[in-house]
Write a protein that binds this DNA or RNA. Structure first.
Lengths: 185, 185
DNA sequence: AAAAACATTAAATTTTTTCTTAACATAATT
DNA sequence: AATTATGTTAAGAAAAAATTTAATGTTTTT
């Protein structure tokens, strides 16, 4: 057959893939991963599965690097280990559904944000109340404590909202409001 | 008056503030800022305004550090410059409405993600179509090109959704679906 | 217009992070 | 059970990022 045509087509296809790989890779900083982990994910996106040696080969990096990158990607649910019988190498697949990645990444992060801040606010509020309810403390200090109390109390509105946002993403309720495929005009 | 009581109250208030400052600071990595910028924001959150020298003093860091941190925070709209007449020092205020910070940060980021990836996909698709519509190319290669085309074409569903999510946050439409204050049970 | 007050840029240093090589641990095959 | 293939941890090297000091630029005041 026409091998030279094929070679040309392969090169062109590589080029096309590389454009997408670069774009994914460059925007993966949003997900808090290193450029090399971003690059690895984007590379895996075009394969059905890869093992550590193939990754090392493809990105020309060391195996421990691949091992740590792939672990990081597993933590944010963007890569899954697949049990592949026959070979004793571990194989991994990239999550190809971006909705899934979006959900698991942001839910995880926002949960942490809510939990951490709500906890701190709860403790701080106890102390602030004690100050502004204490008659022996000067009015100036008491007013300041009161002002701080009100500010952090008010911020709870945001954290509670973020909590509900997370829940509606997890339950996929959000797609009722904002469907994956928008209705026709 | 009772100064010793006041001293104690001040210390207690500092302690309360510090808990909240630490929590904000620790979760600010989500916003892609360095720990010191996170710390600066959290500190400013409890003040109505600060100038560079006050920041330097408070965090015991150099002025150029404060200058770069504050610039980074301005970029993501979490700090605003205020024109303060009388003093020739520039003064800055922290955005205290977390909804506002959420909106401007994520909209900015998601816009970038959508734009970058949609652009790359558009270009890649042109090349992939050329391959799989070319009869002189072997079926194996053409099928692969077709498969890749379909995968990236399908990912556009996600990017368009993300675009609509961003728009509904900007327009505040999202609060119709998910009110800031939830309705009573 | 000169001097002073401030902010920013540049260069150099320190710290942190990432990456690699080498050693180790684990599990599978013979 | 010994050997081999594979993955991970540890330690050291390289690269990147953050921070500081020093220099420069810019604006305001006198």
């Amino acid at each position: 057959m026409n091998e030279s045509k094929d070679e040309h087509a392969i090169e062109k296809m590589e080029n096309a893939k590389n454009q997408v790989i670069s774009a994914i890779s460059e925007t993966m900083d949003l997900y808090g991963v290193t450029p090399s982990a971003g690059n690895l994910y984007a590379t895996m996106y075009f394969k059905d599965q890869m093992n550590l040696d193939e990754m090392r080969e493809e990105l020309s990096m060391s195996k421990p690097s691949m091992s740590t990158s792939v672990r990081k990607l597993q933590e944010i649910d963007m890569v899954k280990k697949t049990f592949q019988r026959g070979s004793r190498k571990h194989t991994y697949v990239a999550e190809k559904d971006f909705f899934h990645s979006f959900m698991s990444f942001y839910c995880q992060m926002w949960d942490r944000e809510v939990k951490m801040n709500m906890e701190a606010i709860k403790h701080a509020e106890v102390e602030l109340v004690e100050i502004f309810e204490d008659d022996t403390v000067s009015n100036e200090i008491r007013d300041e404590a009161k002002a701080h109390y009100e500010m952090i109390e008010n911020s709870k509105v945001y954290y509670r909202w973020l909590e509900r946002l997370t829940a509606s993403i997890r339950s996929e309720e959000i797609f009722e409001f904002l469907p994956k495929n928008p209705p026709e005009e």
